[in-house]
């Protein structure tokens, strides 16, 4: 298991009706890497990550976390992954502390360890000021933070994060980045999806670019972007339309 990659997707396919959202995706996330999955809207990033996290059943293919098949041995795989989905609900009528305690109980973390971890996570995430606020009343940024805290709580080996920085203010984003960098430095692996190229360039050492359900480029950041910025490489690979399309002439009148 030690030499296994943190995440390996093999021949992954997902079709919704006649649309193939993820089309024969092969992807390897090396252990200890900070992996960025980029692509335009609708490229299939969320669909691919949902399948890797055990939340969406693949049409075909395999998802392995440290060599454990997510769909064949879900119980073991789920102890290895921490997930932050984008825009999904949480148990809304709990406070942040209650939500973390609840999650820890579901994951059978011993109570004394749990109490300590919960306090630490709330402090690091800057959520101690909202002790009595229910999650339903959290702002979008606070939801991201409490979501990341639930993903980190059980000390996973792999974090799967879908758009973790969307709607997060710059100060909180800096704190989240620091946490993730520390997580990777201590031997964990992170896979995050984003369409903010600068962020991925700043954080990730390995990237993959998805377009129309396919992986069009993958590898170390330096290899993928070459001598250009990631954004230019991305635009070239994905095939940019005319940057200023015709039309909308009435807007200026």
């Amino acid at each position: 298991m030690g030499s296994d990659p943190a995440l390996r997707l093999t021949g992954l396919v997902k079709a919704f009706g006649s649309t193939v959202a993820v089309d024969r995706v092969d992807l390897t996330v090396p252990a200890g890497s900070f992996f960025g999955l980029v692509g335009p809207n609708g490229a299939g990033k969320t669909t691919a990550l949902s399948m890797a996290a055990g939340l969406l059943r693949p049409g075909a293919g395999r998802c392995e976390v440290s060599g454990v098949d997510v769909w064949a041995d879900p119980v073991r795989a789920k102890t290895l992954i921490g997930v932050l989905p984008d825009g999904l609900a949480l148990p809304e009528r709990l406070t942040g502390r209650e939500l973390l305690t609840f999650t820890g109980q579901l994951r059978r973390i011993p109570p004394d360890v749990l109490t300590e971890r919960v306090q630490e996570l709330l402090t690091v995430m800057g959520l101690t000021g909202a002790e009595t606020t229910l999650v339903v009343d959290y702002s979008t940024g606070m939801r991201k933070k409490i979501g990341l805290a639930t993903a980190l709580l059980h000390g996973p080996r792999l974090l799967i994060l879908d758009e973790p920085f969307e709607a997060v203010d710059p100060v909180s984003a800096a704190a989240l980045k620091a946490i993730l960098v520390r997580f990777v430095a201590s031997g964990g692996s992170v896979v995050l999806s984003s369409h903010v190229m600068a962020l991925v360039e700043q954080l990730c050492d390995t990237v993959a670019i998805m377009d129309r359900g396919r992986v069009v480029a993958a590898g170390p950041l330096a290899d993928v972007r070459g001598d250009e910025t990631l954004e230019r490489a991305f635009v070239e690979l994905v095939g940019a339309a005319d940057p200023v399309p015709d039309g909308l002439s009435w807007l200026a009148s």
Binding site: F16, G17, S18, T19, A21, D23, T47, R212
Partner: peptide
């Protein structure tokens, strides 16, 4: 898989194949 309108859980696939 074979019929119907496609929609990915959190986004619309850009180009139906």
């Amino acid at each position: 898989s074979s019929v119907g309108v496609a929609r990915s859980p959190l986004g619309v696939a850009r180009s139906p194949l």
